[in-house]
Design a protein around this nucleic acid. Structure first.
Lengths: 283, 283
DNA sequence: TGTTTTAATGAAAAATATTTTCATTTTTCT
DNA sequence: AGAAAAATGAAAATATTTTTCATTAAAACA
């Protein structure tokens, strides 16, 4: 995978017309080495030297020299363009999905507010208990999160059933935290549950992929993940993965924060599951 | 081994005293990139710019620029493994987890057998129904998969409860497919359920991160994901994501295979959920 | 061994390449 | 449509690379 081309695609939207011409050239010449001099490339792209320097800087290089060298370093790895088409084999699709996930992670890093993740983690760390709710694919994210938080030593529960969600919220009190997970940010039942929680003085956090969405209005802390419309379909695969990495980073932070847990939680968890494993010798 | 260093050694005898100093520096710094400018290198080698140009030409390059780029191209892409430490902020952890996920995807692409994914997808595509089972974090993977397969137009169910898993298997028949998900590949209950299924002539697929694991012996098709031992902890975050991208690629393939579905499944799914969304105007 | 010839070297000049600056153009917002 | 902001490229300012050439070091020969 060519990281430079991926990065160029990632930042494509931010570029001006002329910078896009540089990106286009790069994207349409994967595997090529860059011309020796910036002037040659400027001519090829029908652009100017300064634009190319700006392009290189946008990608994180100090200038054209670094870009040139980095492109050379990336060579021999072919680019997979992340549009899935009907003739792709399963394995090709896997490659494209991995690419897409990578881009989604990069977008999430840009979208999410660092201080909000920290705030969310600290809120959960100090909470009496944490309840996570979501529907559809967000229900499995919620379940996964509850699973991990519990293993990290925090009281966490998830509910995927709208009735149970309301019941759970009605049993919560100040000092508890409700985490609502919704890609669209507009799931009625989740918004309702969040509203109820908020009215009862319970802290609320949402993880959503849609800015200015209803669920945000009911949240004390907003974790905004990859907001890009998924290019493939409503399966919304990559955005789902982004929500998981956000959960994972919260979880890691919690593990490290939990002094008592830090050293031994791995072993403890391993031991608690030991009886559930096949004794390989008998297998 | 680095081709450029090899060449330098080959031609070492022909060089003058000063050129040898340049060769020595290169040989004693394998894996390093060359300094940005020829003057820097001249200083490091206690030599001069002109000598370095001569050295580069002797090796067959047109000048320092080409040598520099060629050295960069030769570099083995050594990846920095991001180890999370206790002083990292949540946001830093997020970055490292994304990196880790990326590496995990790369490993999965190398480990998984392309023909096996295809076989698994085709098996599911032709099945009367598909049952997915897993425990712990694999339960949420199973749930996520069932959710997506159903949306893609296939009969799919997941069970996270060991009793329900056995009951579900006992109700299956030839023509059905059982997918067992287990990172360790050694979960007793999953292996049991798979064995039962196999004895009853039901096709079995496993998704696991452990080669030569018990669950593999009960499987017709093995999807082996990232087998790297997780560097961080038993939370096994990245391997979890790898299993999800495998599910996602199966799912996409199924979507494209399902002729009837292809065009309109997105819209249908969107419509079926419409009543569950907040009407934004009222919000 | 001393002298001549040849090769190697580096300082500085010349040629190239890159980066910055800034006036002009284009786009966006009102 | 007009004002403000952003993007662009020409040209100036830097920086880098290459060439030149005087000097030095090494080899060849008497």
């Amino acid at each position: 995978m060519n990281k430079i081309i991926l990065k160029a695609q990632l930042l494509y939207g931010d570029m001006g017309k002329s910078e896009k011409k540089v990106a286009d050239w790069l994207i349409s010449h994967p595997g090529d080495n860059l011309p020796m001099s910036i002037s040659e490339l400027a001519e090829l792209c029908e652009s100017s030297e300064s634009t190319i320097v700006r392009f290189a800087r946008r990608l994180g290089f100090s200038g054209y020299g670094e870009l040139k060298i980095s492109v050379a370093g990336e060579q021999e790895k072919k680019v997979v363009l992340p549009t899935i088409d009907e003739n792709d084999s399963c394995f090709e699709i896997l490659g494209k999905i991995c690419n897409d996930a990578y881009l989604s992670f990069e977008r999430t890093k840009r979208t999410i507010a660092p201080e909000n993740i920290a705030a969310a983690a600290n809120l959960i760390a100090g909470a009496r208990k944490t309840v996570l709710i979501g529907l559809g694919s967000s229900a499995s994210v919620a379940q996964d999160a509850a699973n991990k938080f519990l293993r990290a030593g925090y009281e966490a529960f998830s509910y995927g059933d709208t009735h149970m969600q309301m019941i759970a919220v009605s049993r919560m009190r100040a000092g508890d935290v409700l985490v609502g997970i919704s890609q669209s940010g507009a799931s009625k039942d989740i918004v309702e549950a969040m509203r109820l929680a908020k009215s009862r003085g319970i802290s609320t956090i949402c993880i959503t992929g849609t800015d200015r969405s209803p669920v945000m209005k009911q949240s004390d802390i907003v974790l905004l993940t990859d907001t890009e419309e998924t290019k493939h379909s409503s399966l919304a695969l990559s955005s789902h993965l982004s929500r998981l990495v956000v959960i994972d980073s919260l979880c890691y932070y919690l593990v490290y924060r939990n002094e008592a847990n830090r050293g031994n939680f791995e072993d403890e968890n391993q031991n608690s599951l030991k009886s559930k494993r096949v004794n390989e010798a008998n297998e």
